[in-house]
Amino acid sequence: MKHQGFLEYQRFRYLKAAGWLTALGSLAYIWHRLYLFHAPGKLGYGGTWPGYFFGTVAAALVVWLAWLGIRKRRYDTNSSTQGWLSAHVYLGCAVVVLASLHCGFEVGWNTHSLAYLLLWIVVGSGIYGVVMFSRIPTRLTDTLGDTTLSALMLQLSDVDAQARRLALTLPDQYNSLVLDAATHTRLQGTAIQNLLNSTARHCATARALAGVEELNQHLAADSARAGRELYGQLVRRKGLVDRIRQIHRLMSKLRLWLLLHVPLALALLVALVAHVVSVFIYW
């Protein structure tokens, strides 16, 4: 059976639903603006009856979209989480259209437009997230091959053990370089550091590699073999470190947009409440 992603869930059922929703909404809006809405200034706003309609639908959709955060943590339901995610993505795209129709394309410096802006950022980050989810896993597979991150970590400790054993027969500088590489190599930082690859700066493994290469040139002939082998181990270590860092970078990319998406979605819910309350408190 062919794998079916959440985007093509049930033959794009929710893409079709969102398409119909936006198409019908836009048609109703255009019809209303052309034939019913006669304000000479042509300034639209959310207080007309289509305005209230679009606003109510969009607000209900936002609350429902945010409900995914709770729904995905529940395992006692019969509905498919994949279907929920598919609907979340497509109806999330539709909600910006509905919100634009609700505001009549009028914005200003106020709470109401802030909520609209937040909606755009949340949906925009969500779309970015969908793009990431469709691209990063392939690259992760390319990077990991048939191993896993924990396997890479075990290989790294193996390399370290062997390197330490080899360094025992060599001068003290080798030992300190190997120890430094084993203890001070940063494999991952914060999400942003991972993304900017700033963990690779001042890399202890690269330093050890360069140091061993330098020291090997003045090494006594009887320990030259051990020096070469140690160098080989450090080359392996460097390759492993680079792969682990690349995996962390990809993992960060996969999750960093959520740092924008989720907190701003919660702020959006509050801004929506403020929007509705303020509209009706000063009706």
Binding site: L154, S157, D160, A161, T183, L187, T190, L259
Partner: peptide
């Protein structure tokens, strides 16, 4: 793994 500061992946 000896105390080399490399823990399990801890995300963010």
């Amino acid at each position: 793994p000896a105390g080399d500061g490399i823990g399990p992946p801890q995300g963010l």
